[in-house]
Design a protein around this nucleic acid. Structure first.
Lengths: 195, 195, 195, 195
DNA sequence: AATGAATGAGATTTCATTCAT
DNA sequence: TATGAATGAAATCTCATTCAT
């Protein structure tokens, strides 16, 4: 059996899972339904994934990876190294990513997540880069020194994700550009800067 | 059966549910386990709640109500009517509430939520009051007029909840007072004010 | 629900399991079939037994217990304390037990046993009593001192069980009395005695 | 494909099956696992054996054949034609065979056997030769005439097999020579002889 | 109202077997 | 022949819900 066919089955399962998870919610989907929608047999599901949560996890890890990469590309291409420009670039990348992959974004970050199966922890974005950037600003005396940067980074992650999830449910509520503007104002690197 | 006993059964079920939901996550708990832990028969569960999600929803509604009441009391008792003082009071109330009722807070706002059963939507805190307060500030020319206040209110809700959930997982990460300070700096009414 | 009903369900499941295990062999029976034959729902099976092997194990433990009790009664009622009389009594009890409960005997000792499920070891009769009796005879100088009594006891257990299983497959091969006579001649306490 | 390669595949499958059956028990092994461990494709398994039970059966038939041959050689080489010497030779051969091929012995005679699949009966050693030898002794007036020789032969088979299986699990329990001595004392031709 | 044994639909998971390459 | 991805029937097991007491 050619490699292409094999990869195809896996990809079909991932796509079917994404679509069903996004549509029905993570708990109202079963492995049989995923396989059927992928046009494959039940057993095929289990030769590619240990269980439903493994597929979900892969979906989430891929999404996280894609978002991180998009963000890094955007930040690297930012017009200047100024914190505000970098923050704007990162936010624009996230907004664009959510717009382009709404199902993946919802399935990965949505409020209704998979119960953490005993052996498969919830997947989360790292807040490390944001914390480090904030710490740098603080060291340069450009950010409120009273701010707990790790906490602020964590808070920012919640801000961005929570806002984008809401936006995806009400996409007409705001234009992407306005969304970016408002979010930027709330970014710790912007709203807590000094001088 | 005296009224006291009746209420007692309901209260026991709620307490048992809270404890189990918090411990095992919302999806790994079943109605039989809740009844058993409450020291009651399975059937009794169903004479008090339609199903597991009804109990969970009641738990969440109570928590939401308690938090809202605590916040309103705190805001009413704020030293001044200044936006910053009010925001601080609201944040202090939330931190204190989360500290005092960690299980209820996690079960109500936690990332791992019940799948929205067909007939029982996810319960959420209203962002209306925050939006109105921000709008008032804007009208008074004290807040960045470019801010989309509804969006900012929604973002703030995510910020506060996300940060408190993270804190509850390891309360030694920050002192409540420091938590309040940092959160306050990120509150739209504070970080986006003018002048 | 009265206790009688509950015990009844358990007893029905055990009887159904015994009958099916004996008829089809331990591995060609599933929990659904046992429940159905017991006239009960699938779920009922699992509220009484962890799994199919737990039922089988209980069947085997009961059989072992019944056989041991019968043997002890018979030995206690033996006409004299002479080794030969005791051995005869024990053999008679075993033959009678196998004749009276052929299904249970086959299911408990049969060659086609349940694979030892990871957590449920194969159940075996203890060879301790036989070994002790042989040791006593040896100490009294009435048994070949070169005999390894533990080994001989183990060998005897295999002899008795193997012979009875073969007999049960076609009981016309021998009269119970002849069976007892022949087995007795092969019992270590009889065939290895001195003087 | 050269003949050597072909035979090689079959031999690899048999070796893999033996190892897995011995390790995990007959029911916890599947054809795919055997093929994988043999370093061959699943399909290859089915071009050599009808199914898992066919492989197991071949393993058992080979073992039975090997044991019978070893026994016949040993008996033929016995120092004298005396029943005791012949019995000793046969026992020595069996002990040596079990010691040399513990996995094959366990898989062939072990208590945990494959369920007899509908079309593949359990394989067993023939008790014919022993029965005939005992009958001869009886005819010569050298063996207890009350002994049912067929039954005794069957009993002896169980004795030998049961003891050796136990010994394989506790090989330090007895030296081969002591094992032979004890078993010999329990052999019907020895323990039931007259004069 | 309270009880808890019983239920069975449905989810999960395994594995012998097939078949296109 | 050899391969191994794919298959789906069948087994295992869970749990929300009912109902006789």
């Amino acid at each position: 059996m050619p490699r292409a066919k094999l990869e195809d089955a896996r990809a079909r399962l991932l796509a079917a899972g994404l679509s069903l998870f996004a549509r029905r919610g993570t708990e109202r989907v079963n492995s049989n339904a995923i396989a059927r929608r992928a046009g494959l047999g039940v057993g095929t599901f289990y030769s590619h994934f240990d269980d439903k949560h493994a597929l979900l996890q892969e979906l989430q890890l891929r999404t996280l990876g894609g978002l991180r990469a998009a963000r890094q590309r955007a930040v690297a291409a930012a017009p200047t190294g100024r914190a505000e420009d970098q923050a704007r670039a990162a936010i624009e990348a996230a907004v664009e990513f959510a717009r382009a992959h709404p199902e993946a974004y919802r399935v990965t970050f949505g409020r209704e997540r998979a119960a953490p199966s005993k052996h498969r922890p919830i997947v989360s974005e790292s807040t490390r880069p944001t914390a480090q950037a904030l710490a740098r600003l603080q060291a340069e005396g450009r950010l409120d020194p009273a701010l707990d940067v790790e906490l602020a980074a964590r808070a920012w992650a919640a801000t961005e994700v929570g806002t984008l999830l809401w936006w995806l449910e009400n996409p007409t509520r705001a234009e992407p550009a306005a969304l970016v503007d408002t979010l930027l104002r709330l970014h710790p690197a912007v709203c807590c800067r000094i001088g």
